[in-house]
Design a protein around this nucleic acid. Structure first.
Lengths: 342, 342
DNA sequence: ATTAAAAATTAACGCGCGTAAAGTTATCGG
DNA sequence: CCGATAACTTTACGCGCGTTAATTTTTAAT
């Protein structure tokens, strides 16, 4: 970091004592040049902190080294964790991730796709908003750019899908709840994505298989303020006191967090302790689930595996062209996390 | 979206019946062309969804329309909200934001600066990690690129700073707590940024001015898992039962959330109701603070104002060069949010 | 030392667009 | 209707780097 400013690769290559095309080769793949010249270049890099102009580099490459990451709502810690892990995997694979949040708005989601298109990314990792996404636009985008769907599946869109197996995780929880107490009712909000639908279906199916009558309770609400939906719905629901069951399985943790706040306010003690009158369980193992009062029994998604597999799949797609098989989705199993709420 | 693919602005301008330089002008500033030609171009835009090549555009512009946004930890909903608001303001001001999270790592923070440098942004909005940030590198960066610091101040770095006035907000809370019950002790973790230090100092000062003896309790922990730090520290602290006060003011909400989980586990009832034996207050009005059990009394930062002012300041800096005055910082006042925990 | 292969150099073109200069057409007030 | 001006067209160059082809140098193997 001593020498004067370097304006471009031409100047830098002069300082190296190496020709510009060779320096260019180096930046594309450091191992593609002879060890002795690599040393020359890296020695110069120590002195002059030169970086190739991002825009000039990407203009001529037919395909960039960029990967777009889109999550539906980054203020949801679940997705910010997913985004973080995806970023890390992309960097390890030698790509440059750019992360975007749709902020729960389908219009914004489409705008992001427009921005992504102009970035000419090698591929995209996309956790779509879901039900209200503009599916035709997503589909058009996926036809143009290799895209792997994460977390939330949309039929026929994207090269493949990596997510959780709700038909394994939900029955796991249902069985646990039935084994340890009153069979649960299911607490949900209008489904924002296919996972929500699958969870309800999985609940109903699991209950019937165990010989119980399923009870689905749906509350209103239409944006990504899940806690508020759970809270307001919970106040109404618990106030009336005509619950079909004193065990409530929530469609997701954030809803459960809101519901627990409502129960607390109504002086209903939640948990598995003898003096409790209500059990509440969630799904997702939200980062804050262990700090609710009481701590939340839930299902942990293996998103370490999900994110790694997603990036793997995308890199494969990028480097080896279209997937050989047709849309081989991957579903990971959830783990039951037993805490004190159910 | 009917016609065939457009490869570049040349082809597109032909479809418009307008020359390429004029189309170029249009994309830089739509109002800079005559209404009749703007209509021609926009009519063509309806048919052929053309967007200028991002990389070619930015290669020749001495200054891009990009604004970099850096937050220390996007998994913290406080910062994801800040990032979201900053993004929106940038778009409204006609810039293209790119958001990055340092994920709590100073090394990663510096890497982001490297990436930003290669993006040649017009300016950067930076919420630094704080105490452990590599300050010399941040300073070098800020000398090169117009940068506004947000939320967390670092002396002498950046063109200006926009944040909250801890010396107003903390006394507000201290006075409230003293007025309504036992004077608070202060619960903190090793300070990650200057705000933490200022809050402690403000607490001490406010207590002394009210004629009370300040008590600062510090617990261990060194990353961004604040809830866990609060929880573990809380278990130890509340277990011993030698608290200097039954009112605890926490350095931030996330710490308070952890502490409340610990209290719950130890069967200590928190709140202002008659049967409660502990009051807990926080700072920041974390998005989940209203869903804790009990709901958390805290200080709400005016981050609507903070984010708007930050973008304003940066745009000013970009368009009118270096700030005329020297580093005129802006501090916004916090509001007391009274809920049921204290 | 000889030679074939590997790597580097030189020279040159093109990517898509910003931008400037010079010339042409459209617009508008009088 | 005319002149002044604003807006547009045409032409051309350059940004910084990827990339290719032809040539020269270096390396490693015989």
């Amino acid at each position: 970091m001593v020498g004067q400013k370097i304006r471009n690769m031409e100047e830098f290559s002069a300082k190296c004592g190496v020709s510009r095309p060779t320096v260019s080769k180096y930046f594309n793949e450091p191992t593609s040049v002879r060890a002795s010249t690599r040393q020359k270049i890296e020695a110069a890099l120590e002195q002059y902190d030169f970086r190739p102009n991002l825009y000039a580099v990407n203009q001529n490459r037919r395909i960039t080294k960029n990967i777009g990451i889109v999550v539906p709502y980054v203020a949801d810690p679940f997705f910010s964790e997913v985004a973080r892990k995806l970023e890390r995997c992309c960097i390890e694979a030698g790509f440059s991730p750019s992360t975007f949040s749709s902020h729960g708005s389908p219009d914004h989601e489409v705008e992001i796709l427009e921005i992504l298109r102009s970035m000419r990314p090698a591929g995209v990792l996309m956790a779509p908003i879901g039900r209200v996404s503009h599916k035709n636009k997503l589909e058009a985008f996926c036809r143009e750019i290799p895209t792997v769907l994460v977390d939330s599946n949309l039929e026929g869109i994207g090269a493949t899908f990596i997510g959780s197996n709700n038909f394994q995780s939900v029955p796991l929880m249902v069985e646990y709840l039935c084994r340890t107490g009153e069979p649960p009712c299911f607490f949900e909000m209008p489904p924002v994505n296919p996972n929500a639908n699958k969870r309800r279906a999985a609940y109903t199916q699991a209950m019937e298989e165990l010989g119980h009558t399923p009870h689905v309770i749906r509350v209103d609400g239409n944006d990504w303020e899940f806690e508020e939906i759970g809270y307001k719905g919970g106040l109404k629901l618990l106030g009336k006191d005509d619950l079909p069951s004193r065990t409530i399985l929530c469609s997701n943790d954030r809803l459960a967090i809101g519901l627990m706040a409502a129960a607390y306010e109504l002086d209903i003690k939640v948990g598995i302790a003898p003096d409790c009158s209500l059990r509440i369980a969630g799904h997702d193992d939200h980062p804050f689930a262990r700090y609710t009062c009481p701590s939340l029994t839930t299902i942990s998604q293996d998103y370490e595996a999900i994110t790694e597999r997603s990036v793997d799949a995308l890199v494969n797609l990028i480097e080896h062209g279209r997937a050989t098989k047709q849309r081989q989705d991957t579903l990971y199993e959830g783990r039951l996390i037993m805490r004190s709420s159910a």
